[in-house]
Design a protein around this nucleic acid. Structure first.
Lengths: 247, 247
DNA sequence: CGATCGGTTGAAATCCGTCAACGCCCGTGG
DNA sequence: CCACGGGCGTTGACGGATTTCAACCGATCG
């Protein structure tokens, strides 16, 4: 359990190294960050919308959702975060969030004080690395806007599955065509902007095309076909060549 | 015209100062950036999706759209940028864009080489300022996901009008309740993820509530009522207190 | 003057949300 | 051991929201 702090920071470092080169000293600075490990249960709100935060949050295991609330209480998930990702790095420069952060599944989180990250950001390379991560996060958000804004339900869901497949594979959790997605249909519906009822029907339609989501397990029989159906084009994930599917 | 370079850089600087404090030297460094002014006509694609860019783009006047394309050619606008905003700052850390950039109206743009911005980012405060701007951009994207993902068309359009009202007011172009929005209904439809036909009908419904969009002019009779209808809550714009509407 | 673009309107088809009910699984408590 | 209840998934029927297809009009421009 105390080693999970080291493990979490190492995951964070590897994430940064995906997109930015860092010297040995800079890498050690990340490893030396102060951090606190905490387990949260599924359904728990880690950050309440409107709250002022002083720590950023990294996911060691589990699944987190960044969400917005409507007056009637309905939630819209605007981003999902898988293990190895910093779900809150943007809160360092912008600490007063307009959104909330919820544990979709039981999760182990690593909390890092903003002050420590701000301090590290005085180093130019590390600042660039943080900036880069935030830009990549924004790139995914932009894609979500496009995905939710335009497509019919089946490609919308398929697109999310393709994206999460790659991200899960990168996290070392299964493969892009078969991975565990520890969320309910209702939570998934919130993420793609539809009703759980309609999502359920959409899943049945997708099952006919070899894309299934059963017992929290996503299976994509023909990944290439699914990517085509979803018009999935992974550039926006800002990942290095070798982790991407062949064109 | 040569002065527009200075004017554009000054707008950029003021934008950064909204959210970050900078010393006189740092401010001068922004003012001394190399930059190129260019006028583009409405409808012109400044950045083609998938292209590798080596310059960031600031808007001196006009209106820009960041968009994603579908195979069938339809576009989904994922972000709109008004004068005074850097529509491309994230391309410094992430130069291979998955999206395109289009001039919605005739626009005057200021292009700044990535290299120069990267160079400035070696300064910790400036790096934080850039990071902050990118995070704010992401915050708006997140809100767009929530806005588009939610059901009804009228609040969706009203929300966009409220947001653009504040951003236009901040840019010194009209007020939050009356400003020019130089785009066609079809372009607006792309931005909110609906058909131009349905947008047209939605506009008529909104007109009955005092929110009009006629001859590219947005008028909001009762701003507070419109904000309530749209469930507009401006925290996500990451603007200083005094520029926000009273609660 | 014709052509094109942007806006407007109508009618039909489709997608999707709402309401409601039911079954399954699993944990809890009797 | 069984009864109960709640969370979750599933399904049907219905209505409303949105898209699609189509036509028309006014303004602008060559």
């Amino acid at each position: 359990m105390p080693d999970d702090r080291q493990r979490g920071l190492e995951m964070f470092l590897q994430r940064l190294l995906l997109r930015t080169q860092l010297t040995a000293e800079e890498q050690d600075a990340i490893r030396a960050l102060p951090a606190r490990v905490e387990d949260v249960r599924a359904g728990r709100d880690v950050v309440v919308p409107g709250e002022h935060t002083s720590e950023s949050c990294m996911i060691v295991s589990g699944l987190m959702s960044r969400f917005d609330v409507l007056l009637d209480g309905r939630r819209q998930t605007v981003a999902l975060y898988v293990p190895g990702e910093m779900c809150d790095l943007h809160s360092v420069p912008v600490p007063t969030a307009g959104w909330g952060l919820e544990a979709v599944a039981n999760s182990r989180l690593l909390f890092v004080p903003h002050a420590a990250l701000r301090d590290l950001a005085r180093n130019a390379s590390l600042a660039l690395a943080f900036w880069c991560d935030t830009a990549a996060d924004g790139s995914i958000l932009a894609k979500w806007v496009a995905n939710i804004g335009r497509a019919q339900a089946p490609p919308r869901v398929a697109h999310l599955f393709c994206e999460l497949g790659l991200r899960m594979e990168l996290a070392g959790l299964g493969s892009r065509s078969e991975f565990e997605l520890p969320m309910t249909q209702a939570q998934l519906a919130d993420a793609v902007g539809m009703t759980s009822v309609h999502l359920n029907r959409t899943l049945k339609a997708l099952a006919a095309k070899g894309v299934t989501f059963v017992r929290k397990q996503v299976c994509i029989a023909d990944w290439k076909a699914a990517a085509e159906l979803a018009e999935f084009e992974p550039t926006y994930l800002v990942l290095p060549e070798e982790t991407l599917p062949p064109a």
